[in-house]
Nucleic acid binder design. Sequence first.
DNA 1: CGTCTTTTTAACCAGTTGGTTAAATTTTTG
DNA 2: CAAAAATTTAACCAACTGGTTAAAAAGACG
Lengths: 225, 225
Amino acid sequence: MSNVHLLTIWLNVMSKSELDLSSKEKILNAARRVFIRNGSSGARMQEIADEAGINKALLHYYFRNKEGLFDLVFNDAFSEFIPKIYSIFSGDGSVMEKIERYVETHLDLLIKKPDLPMFVLNEMQRDPERFFSGILNKMPGAPPFEFFLKQIEEEMKDGKIRTMNPRDLWMNVMSMTVFPFIGEPMLKKFLIINSEEYRILLTKRKESIMIFIKQAVLLPTPNNA
Amino acid sequence: MSNVHLLTIWLNVMSKSELDLSSKEKILNAARRVFIRNGSSGARMQEIADEAGINKALLHYYFRNKEGLFDLVFNDAFSEFIPKIYSIFSGDGSVMEKIERYVETHLDLLIKKPDLPMFVLNEMQRDPERFFSGILNKMPGAPPFEFFLKQIEEEMKDGKIRTMNPRDLWMNVMSMTVFPFIGEPMLKKFLIINSEEYRILLTKRKESIMIFIKQAVLLPTPNNA
DNA sequence: CGTCTTTTTAACCAGTTGGTTAAATTTTTG
DNA sequence: CAAAAATTTAACCAACTGGTTAAAAAGACG
C-alpha cells in the first residue's frame, strides 16, 4: 500500500535528477553483460550484483525484480538502433545510399557492442510480442519499411538497380551486416582465424560488404561515362 | 557402486538394440524443442517430460541428467551438418559449384529444422569449447576449410572470380544462408510479411542467393560466348 | 501363465534462486 | 551538525527445480 506510493515518489525523483551517476548505471551495465552471457533465465541476480560491485539488497532497492530489469536492458538495446534505422530509411537518398548508410551505422554500433544481436534476437525469438509492444510502435510517424520497399521497386523499374525481390535484397544486406556478430565462434573455426584477426576483418567489413552489394545489384550506368 | 555397473550394462543393451522406438526418441525430440524454446537453463525437465508425453521419472530413467540430455541434443544438431560440410568443401568442383552445393544443402536442412541455428549458435557462444571437443575434431581427415580458402585464392588469381578477401566471401555466403532463420521475427517486421509469406521467401532463397552471389563474384568469361 | 521391461505414481529431498525485511552503517547534502 | 538518501549486512522465506526412490501397474513376450 504505502510501498506503491513510496515507489512512485522515488521514481519521480529519479527521473527528475537526470544525474543517475554510478550505482544505477553500474547495475544496468552489469545486467546487460550478465543477461547476454547467460540468457534471461540463466542470469542470476547475485551475479549481476557482484558484477556491478554492489549487493543484492541494493539491486532490489533500485529495480523491483528481475523481469523489470531485463525489460529495461532489452529496450535499451533498441533505443539507439531503431531511431537511426527510421531516420535512414525514411530520409532522402537513393537505395544504394540508404543501404550504405545503414551498413555503416549498424556496423559501427555492433562493433561497439558485439554481443547485442545475439542477446536481442535470442530474446526476440522467445517472446516476439515484447518487440512489438516495445520501442518499435512508440516511434513517431509511420514505419519507413513499406516506403523503402517501394523505393527499391521504383529504382528497379527505372533500371538503376538490377531486378530482384526487394525483400531478398534487404535480407541479404541485413544478413551480411549482422550475422558475423552472431556466428563468430563458428566462423572463426571455418575461417581459421583468431579473435584478433576476426576483429580486424569486422573493421574492414563496411567496404567489403558495400563492394559486394554494388557488384551484385548495381547495373553499369548506360548514360554517363 | 553397483549403480555404475548397471548403467554400463543398460547402455550396452540400449546401443545394441538399435530399435529404440518411441519413448527415447520422443524424449529427444521434445528435449530439442524445449531447449530451443527456453534455452539450456530455461528448459525444465518437467516441461520436456510433458512435451514428450511421459513423466519425469521415465525421463531420468533414460537420461541420467539434464546436462547429458542437452549434450546429446546439441551434438545431434551437428551430426547431420558437419559431415555434409566436410564432404562438400573437400570434394571436387569449382568454388562456385561448392558454394552452390553448400547453400542448397544447408538451406534444405534449415528449412526442415528452422530453430536449429538459433539453438546451436546460442549455446556455442555460451561455451565454444563444446563445439571444439564435439563432432568437429572427431571427423576423419583434415578439415577442408584451409583447402577451400586456398582454392578461392587460386581461382581469383586465374581470373575466374573477382578478387576479394576469401574470408569475406565465405562470410557473406554463410550469412545470407543462415541469418534468415535467426532473424525471422525482426525480418518479418521489417519486410512486412507474415509467417506464411516468410516461409515462401525461404523456399525460393536458394536461387535468390545464388544469383546474388554470382553477380557479385563471377567475372564475365572472356574466352567463350 | 510367469518373467522381464517399460511406465506410472507419488512422495520426498537438498540446493538454488528471486525476493523481502529490518536494522546498522555510510555517504550525501542542506 | 542533522536530516535524508544510499549502501551494507545478514538472516530469512517461499517457490521452484533437478534428481531420487520405491513400489505398484501396465505391457511385452516366450
